[in-house]
Design a protein around this nucleic acid. Sequence first.
DNA 1: GAAAGAAATGAACATTCGTTAAATTAATGG
DNA 2: CCATTAATTTAACGAATGTTCATTTCTTTC
Lengths: 195, 195
Amino acid sequence: MARQAGANGETTARVIRQESLKLFARHGYDAVSMRQIASAVGVQASALYQYFPTKQQILVTLMKEHMEELLAAYALEWQDGETPRAALTRFARFHIRHHISRADAVFISYMELRALEPEGFAAVEALRKLYENELKSILAKGAEAGDFRLEEPHVAAMAILAMLTGVNTWYRTGGRLSREKIEDIYEDMVLKSVI
Amino acid sequence: MARQAGANGETTARVIRQESLKLFARHGYDAVSMRQIASAVGVQASALYQYFPTKQQILVTLMKEHMEELLAAYALEWQDGETPRAALTRFARFHIRHHISRADAVFISYMELRALEPEGFAAVEALRKLYENELKSILAKGAEAGDFRLEEPHVAAMAILAMLTGVNTWYRTGGRLSREKIEDIYEDMVLKSVI
DNA sequence: GAAAGAAATGAACATTCGTTAAATTAATGG
DNA sequence: CCATTAATTTAACGAATGTTCATTTCTTTC
């Protein structure tokens, strides 16, 4: 056989992304072979090279897309003229909501940074900094306005991001707590931690 | 050459641990080869098998030792009859202090869980739960006594641990902030988040 | 219905991997 | 100083890796 009936390039490309994401998250970039990805897609390893020039490019694509999706989703939520507290509340709830429904992509984006070659690393890191700056900006404004009590906005931002992103270490779909409830808990802790 | 002048088994074993820790933290378990480790130690790859039966056992040993050292260090700090707030303060400061001076081991212990085969995974996971339970116990007692306001002690414990452990994503030795100062900031945020 | 393009296969490549076995050298104890 | 043992080397193993290339099959277009 060579070409399957009903085969379509766009579909295959999407399935490659999908299955790579799952496999990288489950076993790690280095532990997953091109043959494993191909097998999950239902294709031979050589077929992957019609869509990605290297294995590394699959990873870079997944990570960049994740960060760009995150930034785009946050941009949709953003509102001008909010109080610092309202902005921080919005940020916390958005972060939890966005992250718990994308466990695999989040996992990869934090774990596989070291698997990136310099060029891809720089690109992904730049996107991450953009997102971090959204939170830092909220905290800095809040500190200036006297709404937040914090000596080191940078450290506070790192602490809050770590706390929020940590939700993925324990949250599993269909668990006891609803997404709303989890947002409530984290919002509460984040707000209190800076007030 | 075969045996080096002054060679000694105990020394080599320690150097293997040391260099493996560095390499695994820097590149990830799967990305590091036995030949790389051997080269860092200053020995041929086959010599490693005098000290560890498999590459996997090196990883298991490093992770178990890290968790056991953590539990032992915490046991030394522990004090009976403390108020929940004092206990939480002690926990937060201990966690920061212990973790920032062991960046490599901490990194591995969180990143390479998935590289563990079932047996080793279960052992390491059990040790981790013991440590988590120390914090949960503090939070549960504090909630019962009315010192802490939290509906979900489990979630709060996960959130606090993530926040504290996150220090290693940004902290670098010799930075602007002293260890004491960092402990102060995290203690403050953790305490406020549950009150 | 033939030509052109897209989608995929199958075989092969050099390299690297974890691991084993036999041989070799240095330190130790009588 | 000789025998033993500990520490390490050199060489080799089969298996797996990312990637390339020529070929084959299906779809679309004229």
